[in-house]
Design a protein around this nucleic acid. Structure first.
Lengths: 352, 352
DNA sequence: TAAATTTACGGGTACGTACCCGACACTTCA
DNA sequence: TGAAGTGTCGGGTACGTACCCGTAAATTTA
């Protein structure tokens, strides 16, 4: 049961180079105070032995804290969706803070790109060791990731993905399939070939995840030769009044709408509109386990909710970064969350 | 940047109990040599402080090796499928052996349940700390897991799952969906409403994963109102001669078979049969990136192969156990592998 | 050329836990 | 009554790395 002694550490390197452990350490962390000659000698031995530091010992001895930036939207009075990931993040924090991991939260406002920029700059200047973020603003996030890449800062996305990003990890739903599932659920309620409305309520119209979801949604209809015409609207002002205004208009224009698919958690505002206007015969499918949404689910205004375990996304996101940082690479590029279906019948048992 | 000093370790416990660290340690590992009185006092303080050991330090100081049993089928001359997971397992081993993890391999013979029993007994007696296994024999695996559960031995399944097992982790495909995908691929080649044959070549007929796959397969046909009749055969003797005999018979009985779905990696033996009997107009879909399968894929005998990244399953399986054992719980109950589709066109780029 | 810096390096302690090696008191038995 | 055992505990070192502090040598400066 003895541990294999085939492992070479700093001690062995020091012995071979005929220097002290401290000097080897200086080279390893390229600190000053080592002559070029001994530096080269030590580096050669490091390469020869293919030295891999013992990260357990390293973390134990280090007084430095690992700092992880959490970069997600602020929980707003409009929608408290981001409360769930934050809970998971806090849970992860309490589990690993004893190993010297500290989280710094940077919230941005979904209605204000400038707040994203500001916080992004703060993060880059704060000297953190990793970032967990929601790439809600696609373009801005892409640029931010680029900046992180330059200084070798690992980044993990949750909630939605921006493909073709190098060096990032994604933990969240397969957005296309999620939309596909949404369409399938919708067909359970479709009784005719009348129109289907896709509603995107967001200040960001070009948001990549909504596009992916909608593509999945449309794909289902194509794949299954559903004859329903799919129309879509973007509602850029997220308050209830604007939503009502837009919906009133579109429903007047297209009298034959028999079902609505909302691409995010703001389905409750559509539900509220339908309720207030007595349009309860329109099927409604949307996203996320919010209290308001559940209420409308219970009262049959919303037919289905899709949910991607947001709390677990937060928890896993932090844990993934922690493992990445503490245990070395182990890089898992993508981890898809389940696409859970919530109905009136099973909502009581749902685990976020 | 200072580490939070809110953490209480053995030192603090010792101070409060007015004993030495060694005595606290004795209590923590319930070794002998502590009076009932001090034991109780120390245990009370442990509970009060909600002491969580620093696993990093613990692993570093411990001279004990973590032993993980690898319990998978032997690579047989018939099919070298299990070579891939083994490669991933070896890769994981080389990455973590420096942290005192040792793997003990126990191979069983897929044609011999007795070999499974024998090795299972060996594992239980070997005093390992965790088990990575393929539950190829469902009933036997279930019983084995029960035994492991009694002695609190964590178990991880790869390749296929046995649901409703407590305390195990599964890393592998969503079998039902995999069969569903198989059916969808099949429809690309179906030109009429003639019969579809499902072939299960295995010494184990009641193998849970084949049943799951087949259910997924049939579900697709049901969901999409495909009129094709699905017939199935079990071939319990896996040699080429037996396969040929069974196929000859079933093809005579059902003259209208236009497609065959093989539920595991032994699709090559069906391909060989089709080739030798010039039945190349029959569509063929099966599993796994084996050299023989790829050859038949290239020569158009096999139309599609489905693959679940077996190497990665092995790698992740070990890593999951390692993290579970070293970093504490972090238990991830299920991790589904992607359901990859391999065709003649993309096989050259496939990453196992 | 002596003093003041700077450069280059080693000694040694700490991180939190594991565990060996005793020490001391107390009991048992011849 | 003394020796041998048993139960209970503490001191101290080790794991592999990080990093503080001190010092001798080399270099610069006066």
């Amino acid at each position: 049961m003895e541990k294999e002694n085939t492992y070479f550490g700093v001690k062995e390197i020091a012995r071979r180079a005929k220097v002290s452990i401290a000097t080897v350490d200086r080279v390893l962390h390229n600190r000053t105070g080592v002559s070029e000659k001994t530096k080269k000698k030590i580096n050669d031995i490091i390469k020869e032995l293919d030295y891999q530091p013992n990260i357990l010992a390293s973390r134990l001895a280090s007084k430095k804290t690992i700092n992880i930036a959490v970069f997600i939207p602020r929980v707003s009075p409009e929608t408290d969706f981001w409360d769930a990931p934050l809970r998971g993040i806090r849970r992860a924090e309490s589990e690993i803070k004893k190993y010297g991991v500290k989280l710094n939260t940077f919230f941005f406002d979904l209605n204000d790109k400038e707040s994203f920029h500001k916080q992004a700059k703060l993060i880059l200047d704060s000297g953190v060791n990793g970032v967990l973020m929601a790439p809600s603003f696609v373009e801005e996030a892409t640029q931010f990731v680029g900046d992180c890449h330059k200084i070798k800062l690992p980044v993990t996305f949750i909630d939605s993905n921006v493909p073709e990003q190098t060096n990032i990890t994604y933990i969240g739903p397969h957005l296309f399939r999620s939309g596909y599932v949404g369409a399938k659920l919708m067909t359970y309620r479709l009784k005719s070939d009348r129109k289907v409305l896709v509603v995107n309520i967001s200040t960001e119209t070009d948001n990549y995840n909504y596009i992916q979801i909608e593509e999945g949604f449309r794909s289902y209809f194509r794949d299954h030769d559903q004859a329903n015409e799919i129309i879509r609207i973007d509602i850029k002002d997220t308050d209830q009044l604007s939503v009502a205004k837009h919906l009133t208009k579109v429903i007047h224009q297209h009298q034959e709408i028999e079902a609505i698919f909302v691409t995010n958690s703001r389905v409750f505002s559509v539900a509220r509109f339908l309720q207030e206007n007595n349009l309860t015969n329109i099927a409604l499918v949307g996203y996320d386990f919010l209290k308001e949404n559940i209420d409308f689910l219970k009262s049959n205004i919303i037919d289905f909710l899709i949910c991607h375990k947001p709390e677990e996304q937060g928890y896993r996101g932090i844990m993934s970064l922690y493992q990445n940082l503490v245990l070395g690479s182990l890089v898992e590029k993508v981890h898809f969350m389940p696409i859970d279906i919530i109905t009136k019948e099973n909502e009581a048992f749902y685990q976020n």
